[in-house]
Each structure stands twice: as structure tokens, then as C-alpha cells.
Design a protein around this nucleic acid. Structure first.
Lengths: 374, 374
DNA sequence: TTGTACGCGTTATCAC
DNA sequence: GTGATAACGCGTACAA
């Protein structure tokens, strides 16, 4: 992958900053302008130019103006690489997500973090991994702290080896919806267990006596699926007095090995409808899978919410579109908070409570209703 | 924003690479290991270490192994900033999107580009803008070519000033779904006009004699809405012999100034239903707005597709969930192709046809059907 | 307030 | 194949 190329090639296109250039610009006609060119043009030293360009108050306003104008005329921009090397700060924050950038959740946390970071001059560098090898690569990139000032790690259930690696990283690391806060300097998470409790109690109040929880099938081997939601479901249900045979829990891994996703879904619906005590209130691990499940339920002639109620989790774009009752969470704020935490830690500011929980709420729409009679 | 901090602070956490360190490691006990430490530990010169770490074949395999092992033992990682400064390559590609990272389209192109770039060692740096000031800032960051090796600019209808700026950038710049290819070194776009033609001809074949095209209301002032789709709609319809009063076109800007989005939507539906020749086939600029529109249409007791057919554009997540007939496009591939093009241009490879068109296709689902009788 | 001098960690050239 | 040495562009003590 290393292609032979000329070292320090001159700009390929029209170099418009050469227009109107006077004799103080002495570097010849090729090459990009450096801060020294700016300094020369403004009639100051290189260090003064540096101070002025970064808005230091140690420089006289008039001087600063001259420098800024010279920079503008030369079309000069600071080199971040050179700045990083000299200052020790990279102005870069890595964000680790899985398995891809284009999921509703990952998009939202990126956007939230992006805005907070960008405002402070930091770049957000996304890093998507879908297996352990890529994860190792990520940690290798970060170690030594020379390539980033901080990292945000999203939704990962790191094994012990990686947790250990995490602690050897000498930059602040923030967990985002991680099942445990161990190894992170700070974290922002939602309370999955409490959220599920709300859903279960709502179904109970609507008269549903037989409930189910359906995990999203693990079609991708590396996909992270916390067991927190099913646990929350079970905890709350038992506390309300539901017996074990009132509850049906369908695990994600139980649906592995089928020929097609469609088979797995049919299988799930079959188990739901053939249960000794057929559930009328169904909680699904994610909105995305809730929609898929509902399509199959309707194909089997079940009416929603008349015959059975369905509650999703996330409140993503699709949930609103199909008017799904669901548990709302706000990943954009999650991302923003995570970014704010990294920034504070980078600046060695004190953070009162580094591990934070963010609220969720149950949003009632059209897929839930009272339990059917009989 | 510049916080006073100690220059070159030592690693804050346990520096585990200090374990097992012998006397050849001469930089004292603080600071991160540099390539010189690796070279010393492997018993080679610093330049040999550099070659070995980058997998040059100019170094003997045994030597390379020693260097790699030393690097591993010291937990050493190359500093990208230092590499960039020395080599002139930043290994970074900027991606300009609007207005945010977390849209279906932007997420997909990022993912597509990310994978292609990451494989070649490049970082993808997203840059989201929602007004001209931020756009200027973006160009300022890029100018001089010291901060990125290339840029991908998505879905922007740049004005002439920015097009001029684009040409002064001395790095390859790729347009992605830009209305014009002017100023870009290469581009990948879909053919909006042809795509709409397919939709219109399909509705025609289903017997629809009165058609409508609905643009998404411009709730955000800076939002980019190309007129290509409405043009494609009109072109195709006229070619099929539709008269002007057979066609209703609702522009995005016509819905500005309402108190709420809901008002704007009601207004649109009202115009649709009160048209002299009420349209039975409706094309909508985006899937997202098609779903909103359908909700309002149903609220007005229209059955879809019995009373009227609706076709969206994008085939996003929501479209599949609500089984919307739509025009499918594949932004992930768009992103990948754009990335492949930047990489080629960076390496000064010849690109046969720099401006490419990507196919779209009409996906028939449950929101379209034959025109109602009478 | 401004200037001098040095170092950041790496790549690339060119001898050996 | 390997090793000195000179950049790369900027930040920052320190001196003036």
C-alpha cells in the first residue's frame, strides 16, 4: 500500500496566494506557505505569529491584526500535524462503535459528540469494528497516547483482556452504554433495567397477565447484546407476582443456526403463539426487531394492539413511522455528554460524578392497549 | 479555549512498558517510547526501525522481526502526527456532510467510505455544516493541503464563491450526489432525473392520469434540496402526454412560514385533495416525508393504495418498515466509490472516467396499485 | 510585548 | 541492507 511518490510535491493546482506577493516572501515560488512566511509578511517573528494566530492575549491587537491579515493573504492554515507534534496535543478524539457507523444509535452518538468536540477544535474520528482483530488494532492505534487525546467507547462488553488494555491507555477513555464502567475514566449510560421495569409495569396495568421478552437474534456473531434488558424484564415481572410460566423469554442466541433470518423470525412467532400461556404483552429488545416481529405477527392474523401489545426499545426513526409504543432514549445527548466528559478529563478538570445515568421514558403510541378479554 | 497545561506531561497511568526494560533504553523512566527506543532495543538504527515498522522490503526479515518485537514489548505505536509532518501525507480524508452525521444517507456514505479508507490506513474525518460560516471554516481548514490528503463533499449545491474555493484546494476533491460536477476532480452521483422517470412511467402504466410531486418542506433554511427530482418528474410526465393541469407540483419553499411542521403538512394535503384534477399518483421527494404525508392522508380517510398511490425516494430504513414503494439508491456504495476515487487521485493514478453515475431502481411494495376507477 | 533557540517523532536522502 | 543527518512546521521556555 505504500506508493512511491515525490516527497513534498508542490501544490498541483493554481496557487492563488502567489498573486500580489511582495519581496518579503522569500521562499521561492513553490511549496505551501508556512508560519514563517506569515511572520515575515507581517514583519514579526515566527513565535509572535504563532501566538497571534492562536489568539493569545500576549500579543498587541495591532500586531495580531497584521498577522491575521498576512495569513489570509497567503491563504495560510496551521498544520495540525506540526501543531500536534510540537504541543503534544493531537486535538483528536476516537470514537469506537460496532458494527458500523450507519446505525440509528451510532449515528446519533456521533452527531452529539461531533458537535461538542468540534466547537472546541477537536476532530472526531470514528472507528468501527466488527471482530476482535479490529478491536486489537484499535487499541494498538491508541496506545502511547500519541494519536489521540481521548477515546469514547460505545456499547462494548469488553472482555478482561481488553479491559486491561483499556487501563494501560494513557488517555482519558469514556464508556457509552457499556454494561460495566470498569476500566473507564468516566461513562454515560442509560438504565436498561429501570427502563424495562417501566414497560413491564405498564403492561401489567393494562391487564396483561402473560408477558414475553424477545431479544434480537444474533445474526452477526460479534454483535453486542447486553442481557440487561431481559434481566430488567424478568426482575420487574417477578416483583409484580408473575409466575415463571406467565413469562416467555426468547434469547437471541436461541435463534442461531437457521437457514435465513426469515426462518428465525417465523420460529420466534411460532414459539410465542404456541406457548402454554400465550403472551399478550410483548417487549422487544429493539425497535428494529419489533417492527420485523409485528410484520410476522400480522401475517399470522394477529391484530395489534387488539390481540396483543408490543413495546419496542430505542424510539428510533422507524418507531415513530410505524407508531410503535417504545422506550425512548436519547443517544445524541449521550454522545454529547461523553464528549464533554473527555474534554474535561483532557483538561484535568475535576469531574464530580464521572459515571452517569441518563433517563429513558416510555412513549405510548398505537401498538399497545388493554389486554384482550378471556 | 486554550487551557494552560504542562507541556509534555508524562503518561498519567501505569506505564507498563517500563517492565522488563533493559539498559539499552536510555531515555529515562518518563515519557512515551519513541522509534529511537525501539531501534535501540532492537539494536538497529532509527531509520532501519522506521523501515521495518512500515514493512519495507529493504530490511532483512530477521531484522524486521527484532524491530517488531521490540515495538511490541515497548508498547510502541508510530505517531501519525510525526509521520505526517515528515512524509507530507496526512492519511486523513475529510467528508463534508449536511446538516448532520445522523441521517440515513450520511450514515451510509460514511460507512461506505470508512471501510474503503480504513483498509488503506486512512482516517475518515466527518465534518458537518449547516450554514455558510461553517462551510467557510471547512474550506479554511483544508486550504494549503496540510490537514488532509483529500476530501469528499456530499450533496452540496455550492455557490460560485465556494466553487472557486474548491478549485484552489490543492488536494483531490470528490463530489457525491452534487447537482453539478464543476470544480470536483471526480464525482459519483445518482441520476435523479432518470429515476423519477421510472416512477412516473410506472404510475402511468397503472392507469394514473393525474399525478403529483411533493418536495420535502424546507424547514431548515440551509437544507440542500436539488430540483433535479421535480424536474425529472415533470420531464417524464410531459413526455407521456400529461397536460399541465394533470400535474400538481408542491415546492418545498412554498410551505415556509407556517407555525408548525404539522400546519405545513396539513396544507400540503389540502392542496392535494382540493386540486381540480385530484392526483391519484403521488411522488414524494424523500421516503421520510412520504411517510409523514401518508399518515396525514390516512387521517383524511384516504386509503393507500386503493384511493391513491404513493412513491418515495431513497429506500431508507423506514421505507422497508412501512412497505413503501420507492426508488432505491445505495449510498453505501456511493461512499465507497467516492473513497476509492480519492485514493486513486491521491496516488496520482489515472482515473478513466472520473464522473460516474450510479444506478437506482424502483422497488414495488404496498403503497402503489392501479388507479381507482372513475 | 516580542524574539531566540530548541525540540517534538518521524521520513527521506544519500552515503556506506 | 543499514546508518548518519537533514528536514517537516509549529509550540514554547526563556531571554530581551
Amino acid at each position: 500500500m505504500h506508493i512511491a511518490s515525490h516527497h513534498r510535491t508542490a501544490a498541483k493546482k493554481c496557487i492563488i496566494y502567489q498573486e500580489g506577493m511582495d519581496a518579503t516572501w522569500r521562499r521561492g515560488s513553490m511549496g505551501r506557505p508556512t508560519i514563517m512566511d506569515v511572520a515575515a509578511r507581517a514583519g514579526v517573528s515566527q513565535s509572535t505569529a504563532s501566538l497571534a494566530l492562536r489568539g493569545s492575549n500576549r500579543v498587541r491587537p495591532a500586531t495580531r491584526e497584521r498577522v491575521l491579515q498576512a495569513a489570509e493573504e497567503l491563504h495560510f492554515t496551521l498544520s495540525r500535524s506540526a501543531s500536534s507534534l510540537a504541543s503534544g496535543r493531537t486535538m483528536r478524539i476516537f470514537m469506537l462503535v460496532s458494527p458500523a457507523l450507519n446505525t440509528w444509535f451510532n449515528g446519533a452518538i456521533m452527531q452529539g459528540a461531533y458537535k461538542a468536540l468540534h466547537r472546541h477544535g477537536y476532530d472526531l474520528i470514528p472507528y468501527a469494528v466488527s471482530n476482535d482483530a479490529e478491536l486489537s488494532e484499535f487499541f494498538a492505534t491508541l496506545r502511547g497516547g500519541k494519536n489521540a487525546d481521548g477515546a469514547i467507547v460505545s456499547s462494548f462488553d469488553l472482555n478482561d483482556d481488553f479491559k486491561r488494555l483499556l487501563k494501560t491507555l494513557d488517555i482519558p477513555t469514556i464508556g457509552l452504554n457499556t454494561p460495566t464502567t470498569e476500566g473507564f475514566d468516566a461513562s454515560v449510560c442509560i438504565d436498561n433495567i429501570a427502563a424495562m421495569g417501566n414497560a413491564v409495569r405498564f403492561l401489567h396495568s393494562q391487564g396483561h397477565r402473560h408477558l414475553a421478552f424477545v431479544e434480537e437474534p444474533d445474526f452477526e456473531p460479534f454483535s453486542f447484546s447486553s442481557s440487561l434488558r431481559s434481566r430488567g424484564f424478568l426482575d420487574a415481572a417477578r416483583q409484580l407476582g408473575y409466575a415463571d410460566d406467565d413469562l416467555t423469554v426468547i434469547r437471541g442466541e436461541q435463534t442461531e443456526g437457521y437457514h435465513s433470518p426469515q426462518d428465525a423470525i417465523s420460529q420466534i412467532v411460532a414459539r410465542l403463539l404456541s406457548a402454554p400461556k400465550r403472551p399478550t404483552g410483548i417487549c422487544v429488545e429493539t425497535d428494529g426487531f419489533a417492527v420485523t416481529l409485528m410484520q410476522e405477527l400480522r401475517r399470522q392474523q394477529l391484530r395489534i394492539p387488539e390481540d396483543c401489545s408490543v413495546i419496542g426499545f430505542d424510539d428510533d426513526t422507524v418507531a415513530a413511522a410505524v407508531e410503535l409504543t417504545t422506550i425512548h432514549q436519547d443517544p445524541m445527548t449521550l454522545g454529547r455528554r461523553a464528549a464533554e466528559l473527555v474534554l474535561k478529563l483532557i483538561q484535568h478538570e475535576a469531574v464530580e460524578s464521572p459515571h452517569r445515568i441518563q433517563e429513558t421514558s416510555l412513549v405510548l403510541r398505537n401498538t399497545t392497549g388493554p389486554a384482550p378479554r378471556q
